[in-house]
């Protein structure tokens, strides 16, 4: 395999905050990597595994609430909370998957049930007392690296870089491993995959657990970065849609699609915020991009790059 692309990307990402030192630039980098992480989490289930989910916010919110509650109620360090939330995300992913796939839900029906689970979690956290209800939870400000609250934004940058690098590493592994090959078989034709002797139920539960764990990591990072979470945001349909958009626009089932999608969407988001106060403009562009990409570039923006490479190779 070609190690040049990931190595070059890593060097660029490591050097970025040293070159662009301003708060705005570093925040921009954090956002790109953050959306690339949760987009990749979605992509691992939705792209590599072929399980279209409309409710990935259920894992994101689980991660955000798990580490925050462990800190507030049990005094855990947010770093142990990060590990715990990955476990919680994997568990919720495996449970939802086991339940849905045991009952044979596929395609659009699976998309609907993930949406229903995210809604159920949103309503529960909104109604229960120990999750802070609709008011949400506020993390006390205690700036220190040990407390996952860096005094300098650059600390957040390198943390999210590490998490995103892990997610991309997992995507690369999925492209090369037997597990990834089994997933591809399931995605292309589930019945044929079963006929080949693949335990499709097991593989699908595994990929949902993996995706849920990664997504929960994003949730904990979000909670530590903003120090405030509430049910409507972390379990909301909008979060699920953001992950899906990043991945669909960049290219589903590809290693770098979510990163490309995230870079483009963050650029559009920051640019429209700079030129207008009116709400909604960036989302109008995202929605139109989604439609155009499904219409003309079914494999996402990644295809644009591939076309150029192919043309070069031919020349």
């Amino acid at each position: 395999m070609n190690w040049k692309i990931p190595a070059a990307l890593l060097v660029v990402a490591l050097a970025y905050p040293l070159v662009f030192r301003g708060n705005f630039a570093i925040n921009f980098g954090v956002l790109v990597l953050f959306f690339a992480l949760i987009g990749q989490a979605w992509n691992i289930a939705g792209g590599f595994g072929g399980q279209l989910s409309f409710g990935h916010a259920v894992f994101f919110g689980t991660g955000a609430y798990c580490s925050t509650i462990l800190q507030l109620k049990l005094g855990w360090s947010p770093w142990s909370g990060l590990a715990a939330s990955a476990g919680a995300g994997a568990l919720v992913g495996a449970l939802i998957a086991a339940l849905s796939f045991r009952f044979g839900l596929r395609g659009s029906y699976f998309a609907l049930i993930t949406l229903a689970f995210a809604e159920a979690f949103r309503i529960l956290t909104n109604a229960l007392e120990f999750t802070g209800g609709g008011v949400g939870l506020l993390l006390p400000l205690k700036r220190s690296a040990l407390n996952f609250q860096f005094a300098e934004r650059i600390g957040f940058y390198y943390t999210i870089l590490a998490l995103t690098a892990i997610s991309i590493g997992i995507a690369i592994w999925l492209q090369r491993s037997r597990f990834g090959a089994r997933l591809a078989a399931i995605r292309e034709n589930e019945d044929a995959a079963r006929a080949l002797g693949i335990d499709t139920f097991r593989e699908k539960v595994k990929v949902m657990a993996l995706s849920g764990a990664l997504c929960a990591l994003g949730g904990t990072f979000y909670a530590q970065y903003y120090l405030y979470i509430d049910p409507a945001v972390v379990f909301g349909v909008d979060k699920s849609v953001e992950m899906l958009l990043v991945s669909m626009i960049g290219g589903t089932g590809t290693v770098y699609g979510p990163l490309i999608g995230s870079l483009l969407l963050t650029l559009v988001g920051e640019y429209t915020r700079a030129i207008t106060d009116a709400q909604g403009l960036s989302l109008i562009i995202y929605g139109s991009l989604l439609i155009l990409i499904i219409g003309f570039l079914p494999n996402g923006l990644v295809d644009l790059f591939k076309l150029r490479w192919r043309r070069k190779a031919r020349a």
Partner: peptide, 27 residues
Amino acid sequence: RFSHGKDENILLITLGLSIVLENVALF
């Protein structure tokens, strides 16, 4: 025209459509 006859594409196109419509209204 845009869905190429795939059900999941239609789901995603109608999702894109709803994002656009809602935010045009918000705008």
